[in-house]
Design a protein around this nucleic acid. Structure first.
Lengths: 144, 144
DNA sequence: TACAAATAGGATAAATTTATCCGAAATAAA
DNA sequence: TTTATTTCGGATAAATTTATCCTATTTGTA
């Protein structure tokens, strides 16, 4: 569904949010360990998220990644997915047609519309706070 | 959402079904032209679909691809997707966790469940006949 | 039988995604 | 100021997906 990069990006964001809540800045090493991802590849994704102003990066000793506490609630899953994979997953045609719209639909246009809308709603209505709290309370997991 | 191979596979199946309805066997060349796909790559996918007994291939002069008329109605989109991409798209974890289940869910497990179920239902309830008829009546399109 | 038309299938190449490596730059603390 | 720590960013490599090429095989028809 999502690219590996996007999966790592979402998991990393949740882990950063969870720690930022407790005032802790986390390092790349920590993140990669906690979400079970390749370190160097994760670094690229974090850079990308930082450039998109979804997370903050702090260089140097005692540096790492964090998210402003006040922003955690307003960051939607859709922003993360958009930053990494773009919006084709819920905007593009399911069969890859260049032009796929009501007046010129692909064979599965109507059937897909429901799924795509559901996905879009889900991504746009889920925020980092909810996800981080579930990790904190131990009802959801970032790895295995 | 789907791989290119799967997109081509679905479109090709619809085109073959549509022609099989009229008793016409279609060639690889025809198919690739009508669904706007690379010929040699499409050939591999058709071989795959034939090996999965979703379509029939006939070698030699006047050969080509076809689907038994009586089968067209019972072939579900899910079978085609399964044959090419496998079932991870609606069975696997949205964040790539190896183990993601009710007792050990990933952070977006619940949110994803809805989308995945919707996708699964859609793929399992849509058959080639419906899709082929819409192409025939000109309300849907296989390319552009 | 010879020929032409098609698919089958192996080998290979191109493109994209995923992953690694390493030196540069920044920064806090000693 | 020096040092240790940590992210940044460019180069490169590995893996996967997408795409191409060429020969073999099958089959209908003249």
């Amino acid at each position: 569904m999502f690219s590996k990069a996007c999966e790592y990006g979402i998991k990393a964001s949740i882990y950063i949010a969870y720690n930022s809540y407790e005032g802790k800045r986390v390092s790349l090493k920590d993140i990669a360990k906690e979400i079970d991802s390749p370190e160097a590849f994760t670094a690229k994704i974090l850079q990308d998220l930082a450039r998109h102003n979804i997370i903050n990066s702090v260089k140097g000793a005692y540096g790492g990644f964090e998210i402003d506490k006040k922003d955690i609630q307003s960051i939607k899953l859709s922003e993360i997915v958009n930053a990494i994979d773009g919006d084709k997953i819920y905007k593009g045609c399911g069969l890859g047609l260049h032009t796929c719209e009501e007046e010129h639909p692909c064979p599965v246009h109507d059937q897909f519309k429901i799924v795509r809308t559901e996905l879009k709603n889900m991504l746009e209505s889920t925020n980092l706070e909810q996800l981080a709290l579930d990790i904190k309370s131990g009802v959801t997991f970032l790895k295995i």
